[in-house]
Design a protein around this nucleic acid. Structure first.
Length: 195
DNA sequence: CGGCAGATACGCT
DNA sequence: GCGTATCTGCCGT
């Protein structure tokens, strides 16, 4: 029996190549008997050659996962209260990943609202900390393989260039001019569409 | 919407 | 100690 081609092959590209490609892809999260499904609408690329990246100064216990195989999950904890999730990209030994900055709920809205505390719809998942809260992602899922439950990446066809915006990243001071943030044009769940 | 303050834990100097 | 790939609430526009 022939094995199916690995849909995750594109993750071997550079993070800046993968980040726009992840727009339109979906995440499926099984948690507490609920199925949550969301569409990725905003991403940012980080690479070890990039001063703003956690992997810039080399491997540490915290960023270890970024240097592992692509298609796994790098989760970090910041500002004393927020988790953020990245999809690891590139080859093993190279520290890179794509931050999921915003998603659009497709399924399981009730449970997402409950987890987020009943905010207005467009404020449910329009930020990296909000995404992890909505999907119940913490460091427990650090290193998780996104080919498997309980959190899976569903690859979708690449969106055409005209539906994408490329701009600078949010909330960093180093390498702030690198245009490694990508989002879907006119999507109401993008965190800062005017930037 | 923009600006600001406050909350809060952890990794690294 | 200090800075942080952030969010929220509160204020003014």
């Amino acid at each position: 029996m022939a094995t199916r081609p690995d849909e995750f092959l594109f993750l071997h590209d550079s993070s800046a190549g993968v980040a726009p490609r992840l727009l339109g892809c979906e995440l499926v999260r099984m948690i507490d008997g609920h199925k949550l499904r969301v569409k990725i609408v905003e991403t940012e690329a980080y690479d070890q050659s990039d001063m703003a990246s956690h992997s810039f100064k080399g491997r540490t216990p915290r960023n270890e996962v970024m240097f592992g195989p692509s298609g796994h999950l790098y989760v970090y904890f910041t500002y004393g209260m927020h988790h953020c999730m990245n999809i690891v990209t590139g080859n093993e030994g190279h520290g890179a990943g794509v931050l999921i900055r915003a998603v659009e709920p497709l399924e399981g809205l009730d449970e997402i609202e409950r987890r987020r505390g009943y905010k207005r719809l467009h404020e449910l998942t329009n930020g990296p900390g909000k995404v992890t809260q909505a999907l119940g992602v913490t460091r427990q899922l650090g290193g998780h393989n996104l080919r498997k439950e309980p959190l899976q990446l569903v690859v979708r066809p690449a969106l055409s260039q005209e539906h994408l915006v490329q701009t600078t990243r949010v909330g960093i001071s180093a390498a702030k001019d690198m245009p490694w943030r990508f989002f879907i044009v006119n999507n109401p769940f993008v965190s800062q569409p005017w930037h």
